[in-house]
């Protein structure tokens, strides 16, 4: 598992394609909204929350697609499957590399978004990294599983969003609600946060168990 993670990070260090394209896309989405919305709308926590998650979902989609396209070149994914590594471990390695890349993107995008929106600082904002991480974990687990299915199809660029977006709805609603509560300085550890955690657990376990069946030709 660590060998795959090491290889993915090394490939990114060498090409710098993935993180840079994710950052540009996420920042562009946020800038478009900042210019489109009025200052009054921008100061509403619900807008800020939605904006953060829209940027994350689109950047995440690009990241996950890129992860498997790299493996398809020279059919390297088959090389990976030849190795005496349990498919569950392959899933964990791809999942962890996605979490790493999206966490880097969020570490830049989230503070910048808060600054651009001009939201006041509150103590509850300290919980934001944890909520973003929970969202990234759920997104990466489900995304890795769906991308492994989609990458073998001819219209993979279309199939992945078609499969992934409807399944992400519970995560998206929970994450937007929890983030909105955080930005408004309210209690955020209620039902929505528990749904977020449950989503993470369900799809990390599903991915780990089902990956072997998904990658089998």
């Amino acid at each position: 598992m660590w060998a795959i993670l090491w290889k993915d990070l090394l490939l990114e260090l060498r090409t710098k394609e993935r993180v840079s394209s994710l950052l540009v896309l996420a920042l562009l989405i946020i800038l478009v909204f900042v210019f489109a919305l009025t200052p009054e709308q921008l100061h509403q926590p619900a807008f800020g929350s939605a904006l953060l998650w829209v940027a994350l979902v689109f950047a995440g989609m690009l990241s996950i697609q890129r992860a498997f396209i790299l493996e398809q070149e020279r059919n390297c994914f088959a090389g990976l499957l030849l190795c005496p590594i349990d498919p569950g471990q392959v899933f964990f390695a791809k999942f962890l590399s996605n979490v790493c890349f999206l966490a880097i993107v969020e570490a830049v995008v989230a503070p910048l978004t808060l600054a651009l929106l001009g939201l006041p600082f509150s103590v509850s904002l300290l919980g934001l990294p944890l909520v973003l991480l929970c969202g990234i974990v759920g997104f990466s687990a489900l995304g890795t599983l769906c991308a492994a299915i989609a990458v073998r199809t001819r219209a993979r660029e279309i199939i992945l969003p078609l499969m992934l977006l409807p399944l992400l709805v519970p995560l998206f609603i929970a994450a937007v609600n929890v983030t909105g509560a955080l930005l408004a300085g309210e209690v955020w550890t209620g039902t929505w946060f528990r749904i977020l955690i449950a989503f993470d657990v369900i799809f990390v376990v599903t991915g780990w168990l089902a990956f072997g069946f998904v990658v089998q030709e």
């Binding site: 290889k7 090394l10 490939l11 060498r14 090409t15 790299l70 070149e73 020279r74 059919n75 390297c76 088959a78 090389g79 030849l82």
Partner: peptide
């Protein structure tokens, strides 16, 4: 038929 080698490595 394919090399299974990562071109950027």
């Amino acid at each position: 038929h394919e090399s299974y080698l990562y071109p950027d490595l």
